[in-house]
Design a protein around this nucleic acid. Sequence first.
DNA 1: GTAATATATTTTAAGCTTAAAGTAAATGTA
DNA 2: TACATTTACTTTAAGCTTAAAATATATTAC
Lengths: 152, 152
Amino acid sequence: MVNYYADNTRQHLRVWLKLLKTSSNVEAVLRERLRRECGTTLPRFDVMAALDHHPDGLRMSDLSSFLKVSNGNTTGIVNRLVEEDLIERTQDSIDRRAHKVCLTPNGKKEFEHLAQLHAQWIDDIMSPLSAEQSDTLISLLEKLTNFGVTPS
Amino acid sequence: MVNYYADNTRQHLRVWLKLLKTSSNVEAVLRERLRRECGTTLPRFDVMAALDHHPDGLRMSDLSSFLKVSNGNTTGIVNRLVEEDLIERTQDSIDRRAHKVCLTPNGKKEFEHLAQLHAQWIDDIMSPLSAEQSDTLISLLEKLTNFGVTPS
DNA sequence: GTAATATATTTTAAGCTTAAAGTAAATGTA
DNA sequence: TACATTTACTTTAAGCTTAAAATATATTAC
């Protein structure tokens, strides 16, 4: 049944399945630990990480494109984080359509804690790879970087 | 800021970010093409692929564990596919709690078309990798297979 | 045979995600 | 100035996802 395909197609399918499985497994572990140990989620972590990297704040649309998610999606996650006093919206003084979003002091403290745990988890998960193997893996994945991204 | 971490931790973070980015990019392309060119979604494709691999049908819980998603999730996707006459539920003759799910003739025909496109897309996306590079990539990813999977 | 327990599945509530529609403000053009 | 267009953002509708609760049936213990 699978043998229907040419050999190199089959190998390409195997590569993709392995890539997907590995990535999904790691992601599932991160989600689970964020949930159980920290009471939060990966999308929330991603938003907070983006804001931690931009201490002067980000407009909603810049935040969305940084995270590569839709504007509506960002609106929802930001709303929930604002309710919990982890981030805050401020009016852009120049453009009244725009808001800037940034971490509250509370959110910054919280994020630093999360980031440290997150780094430890990943360090642990990736520990089977030697430095050389890590470099090889990165350079192989690099080859898959620019494919069907529809040119604008 | 990133330099806060030890060198090998930083490298491990880079590996994870690259792995996540590559996998997400490929997945986004597949989702987009399934949506635009075929009017369907990846979860629906996954369910149909699972049923195509099990021509005698699967119980809901076996389908869920095969796909590694929750039972409730499977219920929703199956409901929608049943409505469109792509799959069908039949009562398990022995156990009246259980249903078996399988592709309808219509669904099988539809899936075969999707599967062929899907394989072409992946073959195309993975084409920058030589056979040897594909093997290397698989074996490096293999090293990340058994980590924090909570033992039962 | 009855009661307790376990299993198969669905339902519910909440959050994530997108595309498309809607709103408000800014910019360009006449 | 007025009108059209663009830009920034939110809302909506629909689907995906999970954990937890609920339902129905089967199995086990007595």
